[in-house]
Design a protein around this nucleic acid. Structure first.
Lengths: 213, 213, 213, 213
DNA sequence: AATGAATGAGAATTCATTCAT
DNA sequence: TATGAATGAATTCTCATTCAT
């Protein structure tokens, strides 16, 4: 039945799926997962209630669809590795900029998904296993490497990784809780974070302490 | 007719209320607000369904009850002001310790309340207005005072305040998402945060950089 | 246990009963039987919920209490019998006046009781048997007697009785439905009814047709 | 998407609506509005509980649906105007016949609706405004016209209108209260009413008083 | 007798999901 | 595939009634 090789058909299906997920994002973000109804989503997507079940097994499956979108975003550490020759300070700023950009450009998706991620043990476990744990491991490895090269102060790698990740996540969370300052000035966050964290992170003279020389 | 001031009666009522709120905390934390049923909570509390409605107007009112408990916790900045003569470093560590302690000792309460706080616009607005905004304002004032005394680097007060608060909130959030490291080692968080943040925060030689001399 | 002979006690009990029935009348009239709650009534009466159950077996029993009050009113045909010598016209006006007065002075009671009387088969049957049927029988007898004396036109006794009773009941019903004219001018009803009905009722020259003489 | 004008679909929907209203009439009439449950009605209609909510917003809305049916009936004064040349007596009989027929053929509907109409202030107000008040106004106008033509005795127009309407309503009410005589002989009511009322209503010799000549 | 907290049966309503068209 | 009417399980909430104090 499925014309496996029909690329037009496949494209149409993908488009319809995306259309439904867009609607789900919007409605979940506005009302929360539990208060959102399939009818809300169907109307927002401009399809009939039943149509959604041709693309997703059930309401929770819609959430999994959103999670996948989020994972795709999160799992792209982009240019994490180019740090070799760059100054560590520049690298960090670039990295933070990339992380902040990634979170903030998905603010609506996060608003749709994060509350349920926190509230639903099953979802939470899956997400932690698939996304957070690997990310933390990567971060720890990176810090360990830097420490081995002597470019970093002697900090606890696991906690430091989590503090960095947590700071960004926490700022996003505060915005989701309604903080307008963060919503308006989020582009300054990477720089502010760098200014605050780099002195405590790097062993060698930092921009902030360079006057010591 | 009713002895308005009957202290025994009042105590019984307060105890029953607390008993129900305890149950609500547990059930909301386990299953999330929406999936929790009044029956769950009643059974956990060991009362009949109807009894809950003698103490709370509806399910949402239970959540407000939990929020009030959280507010009571949050609104005690305890020894924020004793900083005058102490070393800034010591003060910060003490402050962070207090904040972390406050959040972590209410981890279950947060797990019960935070997801709904993020998902429910009305609740969120109320909480932001009543708790977060005032807290941010207090923090900014404190930073501004320190800056005026020349004891702090020249940082953006609003963002720095939010980074500090966000870092702690973010770490809590990561634990709520399932991070075991943070759950096990949360007592080390204040120190790790101090080590990471103080160098970037303080103008004068900090413990961490004093060896430079 | 019951001090059967204690008149003070008995008086107190009767007073409390009346107080509760007064409250029930008011609350049933305002909200209807089903929407009225025991709590409403208790508060209106100034007693505790439980107290009501010391005087009435259950909520329906309160209604029976009101019905009894109504019956007491209805079953007093007062001076129906004085007709012997009076002019029939004067008698009818007096009778109508008495009936209208009886209904209208119990308008609140009727508002409390009539809807439920119409809606509840059991109650309705009981009331019809105890009050309406006997009243109709009395009325038919009276008409039959008048007819035998040749003082009345040759009308169907059963229907005429019901038309008279129905007219008064219907006017009350229309007032209960919100008609302000009837509420304001109810004192004129007996006269208007007489003017309209007597010519059709009486064989001999009536006040309305007295110009014939 | 939905074929807005699909007549088959529309017919099906109207039929289902009618089916539910029929069931509601029956159940409300049997048990009264408050004691009737949605489940009762759904089972009587042969549909699922939820289906009812696809056609009516809530239980009260069902009652509104019944009221609309009643209004449709009530608002058809059919041949009120043909009186011009007919004898007034004939006209009155015709009118009464029509009114009685209208009420009695909707006895079940009235039994379903009238108690709640009396008990529920909001409903009552709406019904009085939409139906009774306009009807009374019409009746008063008609009487006033007749009076102007000198064909009627000099009676109070407002009260007379209400007495006529009230008599019919009251007779219906007495039947609803359980009077078997009225249930069995309702077809004789118009004639009996005419016999009783016309002499008092008309200025000129009526059939009933023709023997005067 | 009076109180009012506790109870739990019962009802309205919602909404994810199914399925005939 | 798309539709949307029908379904009925599940949930919140109300309130008459009980009973220990």
């Amino acid at each position: 039945m499925a014309e496996l090789a029909d690329p037009v058909q496949a494209q149409l299906i993908a488009a319809r799926r995306a259309q439904i997920l867009d609607a789900a994002t919007q409605v979940f973000a506005e009302r929360g997962f539990a208060r959102a109804t399939i009818r809300d989503i169907a109307q927002t997507a401009g399809v009939a209630d039943g149509t959604i079940y041709n693309y997703f097994a059930n309401k929770t499956d819609l959430l999994f669809g959103l999670l996948d979108r989020l994972n795709d975003t999160e799992r792209r550490p982009s240019s994490l590795a180019l740090a070799e020759d760059t100054s560590l300070a520049a690298f960090f700023q670039a990295y933070l900029r990339e992380r902040v950009e990634a979170l903030w450009s998905n603010a609506e998706l996060l608003r749709a998904v994060l509350p349920e991620l926190l509230a639903n043990p099953e979802l939470r476990g899956r997400y932690y296993r698939d996304v957070i744990a690997p990310t933390m491991a990567l971060g720890e490895d990176a810090f360990r490497a830097l420490a081995a090269e002597g470019r970093m102060r002697d900090l606890d790698v696991a906690l430091t990784t989590r503090i960095l990740a947590g700071a960004v996540l926490g700022l996003m969370t505060m915005q989701l809780l309604g903080d307008v300052t963060l919503a308006e000035r989020w582009r300054e966050i990477p720089e502010a974070l760098s200014a605050l964290l780099l002195p405590g992170l790097l062993r060698e003279p930092t921009p902030a302490s360079s006057s010591d020389a």
